[in-house]
């Protein structure tokens, strides 16, 4: 990293007075890759959030089979572009004839929503359990550790495949369709419930080392309450691993959600789904490569950018990073 030249006018005292957060922010801003990736990732979230508006502007929705007439006798769009045209920007979905661009936009919305909710959920549980186990130690730590062991040994995809039909039959009457929100909730809850163990274990080990540090002992000696020690002394030191874990979890969950959609326990075929699109593309790629390309490319860009952004944030938060 280039040497930082401070403006002549800046007083040295100003630099010294910067809070760790501001230092991190400055560091992050200087990491061009990080900033670029931040904007790309943000674009994905904006696309997801404004999907209905995009649909309005584009003039098509995700469920109507606009391009059905253009498919050939065995359900393939015209080669070699997969039916790409000014009318269908990214082509036509083979088999059903829906618009690929709209499928992708709404699919990103579905996948990101589930991944985001599950990431927030599992990080909250992970942080709580991790800190509790690490700080309290003893019996709490032992039992939390065993629960984590069990969860880590659990094949979560298999669990979902087994669980979704059970939840459906428990909560949905035999003559009702499973509402989309129920599937959505089931997926979020199960992904959260089965996914927090890894983060909890990592955070616990961090807390274990922090617990013995002087500043924590000092706080204890000065009579601080456990709540204050946890929230004011330990938690601020955990932000860096928490952010790294979260930025690492989210793309993984996008992938997991994709797999579930394909295994038949996702959101059903009438709800556009990024992951299912990609996996279906694999089936059609021999003759309709664009149908694999667009969701694949979008997923690749998103996961790489999101991970790089996470890296940049970690670097910015790490006091050992060179530079200001």
């Amino acid at each position: 990293m280039a040497t930082v030249v401070l403006p002549e006018t800046a007083e040295p005292t100003v630099t010294i007075g910067l809070s760790p957060g501001r230092i991190a922010w400055r560091r992050f801003k200087r990491n061009r890759t990080g900033v670029f990736c931040f904007f790309v990732s943000a674009t994905f979230f904006i696309i997801a959030a404004t999907a209905p508006l995009i649909s309005l502007a584009y003039g098509k929705n995700a469920h109507e089979r606009y391009g059905y007439r253009l498919l050939d006798a065995s359900g393939y769009p015209p080669p070699p572009t997969g039916g790409m045209s000014p009318e269908f920007w990214l082509g036509i979905e083979p088999g059903l004839g829906r618009d690929v661009f709209m499928q992708l936009v709404f699919g990103i919305r579905t996948s990101l929503a589930i991944a985001l909710i599950a990431t927030v959920g599992l990080m909250l549980i992970g942080i709580t359990v991790g800190i509790a186990a690490g700080y309290l130690g003893g019996r709490t730590d032992y039992w939390a550790g065993r629960v984590i062991d069990v969860l880590l040994a659990f094949p979560s995809q298999l669990m979902l495949i087994a669980l979704v039909p059970v939840v459906d039959s428990m909560l949905v009457g035999p003559e009702e369709a499973t509402p989309t929100w129920l599937r959505f909730a089931t997926l979020c809850i199960v992904l959260t419930a089965l996914g927090w163990a890894g983060s909890a274990r990592i955070l616990r080990s961090q807390v274990l080392s922090l617990r013995e540090r002087e500043f924590v002992e000092a706080a204890k000696v000065s009579g601080a309450s456990p709540a204050r020690i946890i929230f004011r002394e330990i938690l601020p030191n955990l932000w860096s691993p928490i952010i790294v874990l979260a930025t690492w979890q989210l793309p993984i969950l996008v992938g997991v959600e994709a797999g579930l959609g394909f295994l038949g326990v996702g959101l059903g075929p009438d709800v556009p789904d990024w992951g299912r699109m990609f996996l279906e593309g694999v089936q059609y790629y021999h003759l309709d490569f664009p149908y694999l390309l667009w969701p694949g490319l979008a997923m690749l860009i998103f996961i790489v950018c999101f991970n790089l952004m996470g890296d940049a944030i970690r670097d910015a938060l790490d006091p050992k990073t060179k530079g200001l």
Binding site: D72, A73, L287, F289
Partner: peptide
């Protein structure tokens, strides 16, 4: 079923003449 396949062959040959039953 779906099996993950090997490398991609983009585009694809024209299929119109072969899709007749």
């Amino acid at each position: 079923a779906l099996v993950l396949a090997g490398c991609a062959k983009g585009g694809g040959a024209p299929r119109s003449q072969a899709t007749q039953p």
